[in-house]
Design a protein around this nucleic acid. Structure first.
Lengths: 126, 126, 126, 126
DNA sequence: GTGGTCTAGACCACA
DNA sequence: GTGGTCTAGACCACT
């Protein structure tokens, strides 16, 4: 379900976060689904429970999952999508960096938009 | 020429790299232009020379600039945009994360593309 | 009578405590009223009897209810609101945190008081 | 500067968070002030650096401070106060609980407002 | 020296 | 059994 590359420079806890988010978006995980316990996932990916716990807490903060002491961790009930302006600002900064990097590879606006459409298709397929 | 925000979470050496790249992109710096020496730039932005040196080395490795012993550092004249597949893969990962976060804020494909167009306009203006 | 949200981060035993207290406050439960037995309530809200028992013990400790062996559990008849200084101290700490967070969102004293009045109105309606 | 009560049920990292926030609100800490390094504060309050780090990260996430690798941690530059509706919702829930607890102590709306005014005065004095 | 990530192992609260 | 907090100690990235 989640692939962890321990040799990647991307921190393990971020890989967990991204993996869970992706599974939620792909509807592999649906609202109210139980997800593996901290210890279970830790042993599944041979990571430390603290590392998994950290990822779960961040996911909870962002509203993707809910952790309940003594019961387990669940995909959040359907939320009302809410535009977070601070986050939007941060994401725009990321987009700007991507645009500049793309430009350095000779890739302009229309091609970038094509790439984005590709990524959308990959998510739907994958 | 380069704005450094010492309070940003982005490392200073990366801000230098991005700043130089942006100046090249905007043609403020043109092929064969001389750029400030490590020490000059360090004092201009009140940074540690080691930090500037690190940025220059990385820019040279990526082919944006060339250092000539005893003469200084110059914008490369033969720089040709080239698709770096490793980097492209990394960027697609970033795009995927952006898409997922946007989805969580209720923002879909067409709206994301609108946002990207906005950011392009902002860059052209800025 | 009591709504339990098993997905809330608030422990179930606390939800039971607050639920009973709220019913007493709203006079839905009146002095000497019989309340459901531990097992009854447990099956009503599909919780573990241990959890209900813990809530009842805490409510009894605080003087809201009385358990009479062989007869059942009743709302205390001599309950008199009493300022609990320990609790008051804790609540003042919570208020302080709220004030600070509000300040950080640009909300000052008079606006906070308005918000509190709003919440009172919501409770009366709800 | 920060008083830690290791016997309190309030987690140490929360005590640190609240302490720093309070110092910022009281203007003992001002924008761009350097705050103690993770290791310094850890030894000052005889806690583990990880615990301090956790508190600092949460404070950074909330926009109160900025951490820069290799340089230290600083009070955030003046931010634009921004109303976060999700947080507001959460705070209203807290206020509701406070109101109910107060009611159980025989304290009504007008008295609660008096208490809030008191707490404001304490913050200003303290 | 600074903060960031990770592991290992402990104890507590909750169901 | 679950998640939450804390300590101890390691290694890495950045200045």
């Amino acid at each position: 379900m989640i692939n962890i590359n321990s040799r990647s420079s991307k921190p393990i806890y971020e890989q967990i976060i991204d993996g869970i988010k992706e599974n939620i978006m792909k509807k592999i995980l649906r609202p109210n689904d139980k997800i593996p316990s901290v210890r279970e996932l830790a042993s599944m990916i041979t990571a430390n429970p603290n590392t998994v716990s950290r990822a779960y807490k961040e996911l909870e903060r962002q509203g993707f999952i809910v952790s309940i002491k003594g019961r387990g961790t669940y995909v959040a009930d359907d939320y009302e999508p809410d535009v977070d302006y601070q986050k939007m600002k941060k994401i725009k900064g990321q987009i700007k960096n991507i645009i500049i990097d793309m430009h350095h590879m000779g890739i302009g606006e229309s091609e970038l938009i094509e790439i984005i459409k590709e990524v959308y298709l990959e998510i739907d397929k994958g």
